[in-house]
Amino acid sequence: MTAALQIEGLKKTYDNGFVALQGIDLTVEPGDFFALLGPNGAGKSTTIGIISSLVSKSAGKVSVHGVDIDQNFPLAKTHLGLVPQEFNFNVFEKVEDILTNQAGYYGIPRNDALRRTEHFLERLGLTEKRDTRARMLSGGMKRRLMIARALIHSPKLLILDEPTAGVDIEMRRSMYDFLREINAAGTTIILTTHYLEEAEALCRNMAIINHGKIVTNRSIKDLLRDLHKEVFLLDCAGQLDSGLNVPGFDLEVLDDHTVQVAIEKGQDLAEVFAALHQKNIAVVSMRNEANRLEQMFVNLLEQTA
């Protein structure tokens, strides 16, 4: 099956000599929900810029659904929808006009463009704002407008560059639902985000990019499985003894009611519960000390620093 996105040996050196990409290889399969993660300046936006033609590459090959951008970029672009990080619409235009114009840029006749606009205004909850000038929209609505605009020509591959930055939790969740829905309907999605729990919640596969190199490119499940240690915080009823310990486990009493437990790979958390139960300590609640993906992300970046 032809990959939704195939990148081979992609390099980019800017005019000022900054090397943004040092030759990355990446494959995203059709139908995937893929996360591209990395710290600021790692090369995520440069990669997306090259795929969408806003940045020219220095070397390498990029194909979108089997179409090499060097051979037929216009055709490759028809397969691609882009939601950039920064708002990039004319803020003086009406919401409806932004969508119908974008459809027109893809050669979609006006009647069809109006029908599609109607559809996406409704899907993204913007119908009431159709005659509003874009500058009057809230941050969340502007994000939704950019998603609607990127989807107006029914692309096979949707790339979202930090789409939920500055979006409140409720709107973020409704955006997740919408993205899951269009992914289930067959649209391949590539997401860059700083919210690692977002990647964990939405994506099946991910790549981490750092200093212009792909550090890892695997399924999220595989990556999480590789974590050797996971830290839990146990909230207990009653006063805890500061010298509390369970043989074989790394315990630390944080305060009178909270104990931190580090579980190594192969260890069983149930043994800790059993040991605490024997000491008449009741655990009322439990939570992860940190996002697991975040921990792994930091580990990988430290290894490649």
């Binding site: 969408s52 033609s53 806003l54 970029f73 216009p74 055709l75 672009k77 028809t78 691609l80 882009l82 950039p84 920064e86 708002f87 990039n88 619409f89 004319n90 803020v91 114009n101 974008q102 840029y105 893809y106 050669g107 605009r149």
Partner: peptide
Amino acid sequence: NNSVEELLVSP
């Protein structure tokens, strides 16, 4: 306002 990108990313 970067809206020129609407045209540049289109075919």
